[in-house]
């Protein structure tokens, strides 16, 4: 009897099974989002040289600036992990704290990205300038859009934990949010490497 000393009652078992189903479904969604980003990467790979007389990647990418963005996002992924550990220990206040930190880091990332986009637009190198710029803005912009959705989700959860604490549904949703947030940092690895670093290398 040693292993099964804590026998869960039927309702918990059903909830566990129900949760497993939801996590699998959300994982499958993440996989489809990977294919979505892969298609955008393929488009970028094909169009990145089509500068049509406009600026090329090395001419517009500011590597130190992007490095700061990367550090912000990576750290936010870590703090999100810390939120998950607090969640496992059912420490509602800590969960809120770490999600707030994650939110601030993520928002800073987004603000920096929007500033970069705005700057390019004001100097005339917007998405209408060339195929390269169209694909750049769309690939990075789609990632930014996902970040925005994640931030909205995070804000709702932060607000909700305050009101209703750690209900079963809240826990499940926060786990999915964490999965989503980690996944966005994974995608950023490829954007940082294949768009920015490669862009600077190919003078």
């Amino acid at each position: 009897m040693a292993e099964n000393t804590l026998v869960v009652n039927e309702k918990v078992q059903l909830e566990y099974d129900g949760d497993n189903k939801v996590f699998l479904g959300f994982w499958i969604y993440i996989m489809t989002d990977c294919v979505l980003f892969a298609s955008l990467f393929a488009v970028y790979a094909v169009l990145h040289g089509n500068t049509f007389g406009g600026p090329s990647a090395s001419e517009i990418f500011n590597l130190p600036y992007v490095m700061i963005e990367t550090l912000l996002l990576l750290t936010s992924s870590f703090t999100c992990g810390l939120a998950m550990i607090s969640l496992q220990n059912r420490q509602a206040a800590k969960v809120r704290l770490f999600f707030i930190i994650t939110f601030i880091l993520g928002l800073s990332f987004l603000v920096m990205e929007i500033k970069e986009f705005h700057h390019l637009t004001t100097i005339g190198d917007s998405w209408t300038r060339s195929g390269f710029l169209s694909s750049y803005f769309t690939l990075v912009g789609t990632h930014g859009l996902h970040i925005s959705v994640g931030l909205i989700w995070m804000a709702v959860m932060i607000f909700r934990i305050k009101k209703t604490k750690l209900t079963h549904a809240n826990i499940r949703r926060m786990k999915m949010l964490a999965l989503f947030w980690h996944f966005l940092d994974v995608i950023w690895i490829f954007i940082f490497s294949l768009v920015y670093l490669f862009g600077v290398l190919n003078k």
């Binding site: 869960v8 009652n9 918990v12 909830e15 990576l74 992990g81």
Partner: peptide, 26 residues
């Protein structure tokens, strides 16, 4: 069948998280 006192914590949870993997990963 024993009544589970804290129904939200399930011993059957797939993944027991710990700090180390996150620190290593970071």
């Amino acid at each position: 069948q024993s009544i589970n006192k804290s129904p939200v914590i399930s011993k059957h949870e797939d993944e027991r998280l710990s700090l180390k993997p996150y620190v290593y990963g970071y």
